[in-house]
């Protein structure tokens, strides 16, 4: 996730350097370079995931799931420190201008134009993922493989390739999340992914592991409860709220709210 956000930063600086006009779009605090950088970063992160899969995970998958877990911890420290090596631990800014929230006439709430943009992009990503999983051959094969890996194999599905695509798409989506978080906060840090880890796990457990729609709903619930909790307890404990939700779920419904399997 940090990787994606930082790749966006590279592309952003590169594009600015190339002289792509940086005039902000209408009320947004950024312009065309940011949008282009977004797509470039998604592609590059997906590519990085594929490379790591081919070099490392592909060979380790045969050894078993625990070895993969150990390896992925190594990868996360590796990537985070590459970012830290290049940019250092301090925050990096996408842009510095302060944006003023505007009132939406009918709803009576105040919201920044950037935030409207974030909501729209997030919604588009959700719709895109839904379309991909339901309508494309690879998307269906992904659902099939997650249902029953061995049956997918005996149906002639190249499960290795499916897993690779899953990595790539997962990584790109994480990158998108990182960039959107960066737009909201205006800055990115190498450990932003780590900070989000617990809330993400909580969302996935809430939705049921292996259920993308559950995860999306879980994400909304975790995000909201995190924000609501700040009315009662210190903001420093936002991640702890996620942990409490994990504990409650494990106690009462470990398969997730919508869990079937």
């Amino acid at each position: 996730m940090s990787l994606g956000a930082f790749l966006a930063l590279i592309s952003l600086t590169l594009l600015r350097g190339l002289g792509i006009p940086g005039t902000p779009f209408g009320p947004l605090s950024f312009g065309l370079p940011m949008i282009l950088a977004f797509f470039i970063a998604l592609l590059l992160t997906g590519l990085a995931a594929i490379i790591i899969d081919r070099i490392l995970y592909l060979r380790l998958r045969r050894t078993g799931p625990i070895v993969l877990l150990v390896a992925s911890i190594g990868v996360s420290f590796f990537l985070r420190n590459i970012i830290q090596f290049i940019w250092g631990p301090q925050p990096q800014y996408y842009f510095k201008a302060i944006q003023i929230a505007r009132k939406i006439p009918l709803l009576g709430i105040r919201i920044k134009p950037d935030e409207v943009f974030i909501i729209i992009v997030a919604a588009l990503l959700v719709i895109g993922l839904h379309f991909f999983l339901q309508k494309t051959k690879t998307g269906k094969a992904m659902r099939a493989a997650s249902d029953n890996m061995e049956l997918a194999r005996v149906s002639g599905i190249d499960t290795e390739k499916v897993i690779m695509w899953t990595w790539a798409i997962g990584a790109s989506l994480a990158a998108a999340g990182g960039i959107l978080a960066g737009i909201e906060d205006k800055f990115i840090t190498p450990d932003m992914g780590w900070q989000m880890l617990l809330p993400i796990f909580a969302a996935v457990i809430l939705g049921g592991i292996g259920n993308p729609y559950g995860a999306m709903a879980g994400g909304m619930i975790i995000g909201l409860s995190g924000e609501i909790s700040t009315a009662f307890i210190s903001t420093a404990y936002k991640p702890a709220v996620a942990f409490v939700i994990i504990v409650i779920m494990l106690l009462i419904k470990p398969r997730g709210l919508f869990g079937t399997r």
Binding site: V67, A71, G74, F78, N81, F85
Partner: peptide, 15 residues
């Protein structure tokens, strides 16, 4: 950071 990168690579190589 460089040391962590090296240690992480070492881990993957061992695996």
């Amino acid at each position: 950071s460089l040391r962590v990168i090296a240690i992480a690579i070492l881990l993957e190589l061992v695996l």
